[in-house]
Amino acid sequence: MNSSLHERLKPVATLLDTLLPIARMHAVAALDAMHATPTKNKDIYARCLRTALRELLLDSDLPQYGWVVVDKSNSLHLFDQKAGLTIRFLKAFDKEGSIPPAGSNNARRRAWSQTSLFDQHDDTDDRPQSLWGIELVCTWVEDDEQITCRVLQPISTGQWPDRAEAKTIMTLSHAVERTDFDDISFNGTESNAHGTVEEERLSIRTSPQQTQTRSKAQ
C-alpha cells in the first residue's frame, strides 16, 4: 500500500484526535437530557455521537487539507477532493470493530465489493497508486476504558448474520478518561480486520496550535 493513502489520512486522524472526545461528551450530554444512557440506548447514542462529530467536522479546518463533509444530514461521509477518497462513519458491527454486511443497499453493495488496495500494489511500479473512487469505512466501538476507531476497506458484501470482509488500514485507540489518542497506527501489510499484522507506527500528537477548530460562538 503506497504512502499517499497514509498522507491523505493523516489530517483526518489528527482531527479525530481532537474532536472525537468532544463529540463523545456532547453525545453523552444529549442522552442525559433524554434520561438515556450509552449502554442502555446504544442506537440513539451512536446517532448522537455521529451527529456531534459531523457538526464539529463541519466547523473545523478540514477543508484546508482537501477534505469536505458530504452534504447528507442523516449520515457522516468525508470526501477527499484531492485524491477522490471517501470515508463513511458507521457504528461497528461487533466488538471487534467489524463492518456490517452491505444488505440490499445498492450504494453499499458497490462500495463493499472493491478490489483490495493491497492486491493492487505492484512492487515493480513506482508510480503513485490512484485512490480515486476508493471507499473506506470508519467504525467505532466503545467499552468502559476506551473508544476505538478503525478505518477499513470493505472487500466483500457479507451476509447477515456474518460481518463483511475488510482490510484494516488504520486504528485509533482513545482512552475514555483522557483527552488524547493512546495510539495511531497504519497497517503496512495485507491483513484482515481481525488478524495479527505488522504495523507501520505513526505517532500523531496534536497541540492547539496544530489543529484548531472554529467555534460558531466566536
Rank of each mutant, 00 (worst) to 15 (best):
L9V: 06
T179S: 11
V141K: 08
D32S: 12
D180M: 10
F181I: 10
M1A: 13
Q129P: 02
Q210G: 02
A102D: 06
C48V: 01
I169Q: 15
D180F: 10
D71V: 05
L19K: 06
G195Q: 11
K40N: 08
E7T: 14
K216C: 00
A83Y: 06
V137G: 09
A217Q: 03
A36T: 02
V176W: 00
I99S: 07
A107W: 05
R109T: 10
D144A: 15
K91H: 03
W132K: 15
A111N: 14
D94N: 15
L49H: 04
R109P: 02
E198F: 03
R205Q: 06
W112Y: 15
Y45Q: 02
L90I: 02
H194S: 12
D80F: 08
D71W: 05
I44L: 09
D59G: 02
E190K: 11
P38R: 07
D123I: 14
W160Q: 12
L172D: 05
R178S: 11
W140G: 00
L15T: 02
T124P: 00
L31H: 03
R205P: 00
A175H: 08
R8L: 03
F79Q: 12
D182C: 07
T86P: 02
L90Q: 09
H174Y: 13
I184V: 14
I22Q: 04
A111F: 07
H194E: 07
H6W: 03
S130V: 07
N2H: 15
S113C: 13
L5R: 11
L58W: 03
L58N: 09
A166Q: 08
K72T: 12
A217V: 06
Q64M: 12
D43N: 09
T211D: 02
S104F: 01
P100Q: 07
R24V: 01
L172V: 13
F186W: 06
W140H: 10
T211R: 10
D71Y: 04
F181W: 14
S116A: 15
L19H: 06
N41F: 11
L58V: 04
P11K: 11
L78R: 07
S75M: 08
Q120Y: 06
C48P: 00
V68E: 06
D43M: 08
G188I: 03
T196R: 14
P208G: 05
E7H: 13
A52Y: 00
M25F: 00
S4Y: 08
A29N: 02
H6F: 08
Q64W: 03
P21I: 03
Q64L: 11
V68W: 01
